[in-house]
Structure formats: structure tokens, C-alpha cells
Design a protein around this nucleic acid. Structure first.
Lengths: 216, 216
DNA sequence: TTCGACAAGGGGAAATATACCCTTTTTTGC
DNA sequence: GCAAAAAAGGGTATATTTCCCCTTGTCGAA
């Protein structure tokens, strides 16, 4: 088999140790070659914009990266290069992230503890058939369509309030910080308690952290 | 060079994709061979106990693993096989974890975004000289010895109380849950506020999450 | 043995948070 | 333009949290 008949793969991952090793693993499969490696979404997109490559068979995209993460990169790809096939790679199985990656066009989502055999299968499957989903991911997708009715949407001001509620400020202090009457703040609080099915400010803090509205 | 003159390395990492790829990378360096791979601390320790190997030159130990993580594994090694040289591998640069790994005898701590060149250098350095510390780690060690005076120790009951405080229970409910008078709970609360330099229960919740006393 | 630290428990008061029931104004969809 | 929401604000009452100062008994170190 000649070199240029091999499938062309690009790796985007900030863990150099991983991406460089992975290249060796992919090479060992025989039918593939890693034509480029990038350490974050930004340099990858810069490359796409400059060279506008057309012969790429597959992108392996890490989710957790500095500078421009997998999700943002995926969103850019959706808008600008929807033709590129992407398999997302990640260590975490956070449902929210997985769903977002898929809805932004990822053709597969693999955890990094996947065996090389499954990995090879996934690569082949995505290149040939166009997608590859593990049971984990399929399960989540089904789960999602079944419970997509009661999604909670928070308004901008509510988010700001929640962020403040996750500090040691009193509601009175939060009100003055947000240039609102304490009464309005009380309204936000009450409507949030209702919406989120919580009873105390502690519950609000736990919700905020769990849903990554604030970081600790 | 004959096979058995190569340096013998063991990889312990639950990310099969990573560990199997890493093996290829290490092989490509020429002077090393990966004699075993394990996917968590437990199976690694089981192996050590059964075969009691003596010719191991280096262990590459992942920090974040299921079943038995890097830290616990390191503690076991410290007590049972302090002769084995370990380089810890991790994606996170959490100061607390790094310090604990080092004080439990790790000879090096590398982030997974290390370049293969540095990685090779670290392996060589640990096997030859016995240790390898990046600037990041050295910095933390210095930082630590300079601020080791004001460490906070929490008693068992305080921890239990904190866990309960991170729920929507009132202090009264917590008291009855812990079979103590509400006034005793108030005592715990007050002494913790003092110790942790916080002013509200919200602060306590944030502290607990930041210091991994509770999980969200 | 005495001293101090500490755990457990307590009184009372002030500040803060929560609940429920309102009115007025501003957006928004039709 | 109109009706329906949503946002902003108000009054009042209760529950919870926070703070300060106190007693009693236990236990180990000086």
C-alpha cells in the first residue's frame, strides 16, 4: 500500500505525551497516517483557515484543552467545516458535554480508557459508515430525548444572582451589588427555589456548583 | 543491545488508549521496554505481591484511576516496596496531590502535556540520578515548606457535621441526625467559622467542596 | 494534683433568610 | 393594539442563622 493511499488523520490534544504516543498506535494499525498534530483548538483552526485542507479523513479531538477547548472547536467546525468527521476523545463521561459534542456534529465519543481494539473499530466505523456510538453514548441520547421536556432555562440576571449567592454576601449586599432592591432579589430567590426545587440557599449553591454556574 | 539489558518499565494507567500508546513511545526511545501494564493500583499491587519482582527499573503511575488511585497505590508502595522508583503521571496540577505523591516517595511528577523529549529526559534522570522535578513541582515544594505552619486539622465529628451542613438540612435537623443537642452543633459551627476564617454557612459549603470534603 | 484544653450543653438577642400575598411597570406574542 | 407573561418592587410574618457569654465534666500533661 502506497503512503498516499492511507487514511489521513489529525490529532488535536494538549497532552503531548498522549498525542505523540497515539500517533504511534495509529501507525501500527497500518491503514492510517497522522498527518498533523495540534495542541489546542485555536492552532488547529488557524491551520484549517490557512491551508483549507480537503483530504482529511478523520479528526481526533480532545475535549479538555486549554486556549480553545473541544466544545468550542466543535462549534466552529459545525459552522465552518461540517464536512470533517470528528471523534471526540475525553476522560470524562459528563452527560452534558457528550450531548453537546454530538449535537454539534461529532460522529463519535470515546473515553480514553477505551481499548485500542475498540478504538481501531471506531476509527474504521466513522470513516466507513459515518458514525460510531458506544452503549454509554447511545444510552445518554435515549435518556435525553425522553427527558428533554423539563429543561430549565436561567435568565442572565438569575445567573448573576446565583453567582453572588455562592459567596458570603447577604442578600442585602447582593442587591446593592446588582443595583436592585432587596425585594427584587427576594423575587429572584423565590422563583429560583421554585424552579430548581430547592428550599434553602445551600441548595442553590450546590445546584450552581453541580451545573458549573460557579467554579470552586 | 540484547533485550534483557534494556531498562524495565511498568505502566499503571486506566486509560488503555494512553498506556498502550505510551508503550510504543517508550519502545521508540530504544533503551527501554515495558514489561507490564496494569489498569489500576489494585491489580498492580496484586501482581507485586504474587511475583515479588526485583528487576523493575521504573514505575509510571497515573494519579487518577478507579478502584485504587495513584495516591493510595503510592502509600502502599511507600510501606511495602520503597525500593521501586516511581514517576507519577497526571493531568492535574493540584498542589495538594503533588505534594502528597512526593512525600509518599514519588521520584518525579509529570503532567501529561509534557513533551516526549522531557518525558525521556525524566525517565533517564530518575533511573540514573534517582529523581526528576520540573520547575512546577520544585516551586510547590518551596511554597510548601514556607507555609507549613498554619495547617488546619479537622476532627472526625467536625467532618461529619460539615457533610451535613452541605445539604438543605437545618442545624436543628443536623443535630437530631447526629444525636447531639442543637447547641453542640452550634458550637461546632462557631469553632469551624473561626478556624476556617469564614462568616456564613455558604462559606462552609464552598470550603468543603474546594477541599474535597464533600463531592458534587 | 492542679491546670488547661476540650467536648457537650445552654440563654438570649440580633441579623439574616424564607414564605406568602400583594401592586405596578415592562416585554412580548398574536 | 391587546392580552398574557415576565420583571420589579412592596408588606408582613416566621424560621433560621449568627454571635456573645456562660456552666459542667472529662482527661491528659506539667
Amino acid at each position: 500500500m502506497k503512503t498516499n493511499s492511507k487514511r489521513k488523520i489529525i490529532i488535536v490534544d494538549d497532552h503531548l505525551l498522549f498525542s505523540q504516543s497515539l500517533e504511534l498506535l495509529i501507525k501500527s494499525f497500518g491503514d492510517y497516517e497522522v498527518v498533523e498534530r495540534f495542541e489546542n483548538g485555536k492552532v488547529f483552526i488557524d491551520y484549517l483557515e490557512e491551508t483549507n485542507p480537503t483530504e482529511i479523513d478523520l479528526i481526533l479531538l480532545d475535549v479538555n484543552m486549554p486556549v480553545l477547548d473541544g466544545l468550542s472547536t466543535m462549534q466552529w467546525l459545525k459552522d465552518n467545516r461540517p464536512d470533517l468527521k470528528v471523534i471526540a476523545l475525553s476522560v470524562n463521561d459528563d452527560e452534558e458535554i457528550i450531548i453537546k459534542m454530538i449535537t454539534n456534529g461529532a460522529k463519535g465519543y470515546l473515553l480514553k480508557d477505551t481499548s485500542p481494539e475498540i478504538f481501531k473499530e471506531a476509527i474504521e466505523c466513522v470513516i466507513e459508515k459515518g458514525f460510531y456510538f458506544t452503549e454509554l453514548v447511545s444510552g445518554m441520547l435515549i435518556n435525553k430525548v425522553n427527558s428533554d421536556n423539563k429543561k430549565i432555562s436561567l435568565k442572565e440576571k438569575e445567573i448573576v444572582f446565583i453567582k453572588h449567592a455562592c459567596t458570603e454576601m447577604t442578600y442585602k449586599e447582593i442587591a446593592s451589588e446588582m443595583c436592585l432592591s432587596p425585594k427584587t432579589i427576594d423575587g429572584y430567590r423565590e422563583s429560583l427555589f421554585d424552579k430548581l426545587e430547592i428550599k434553602t440557599r445551600i441548595g442553590l449553591v450546590l445546584y450552581a456548583i453541580k451545573h458549573k454556574i460557579v467554579f470552586v
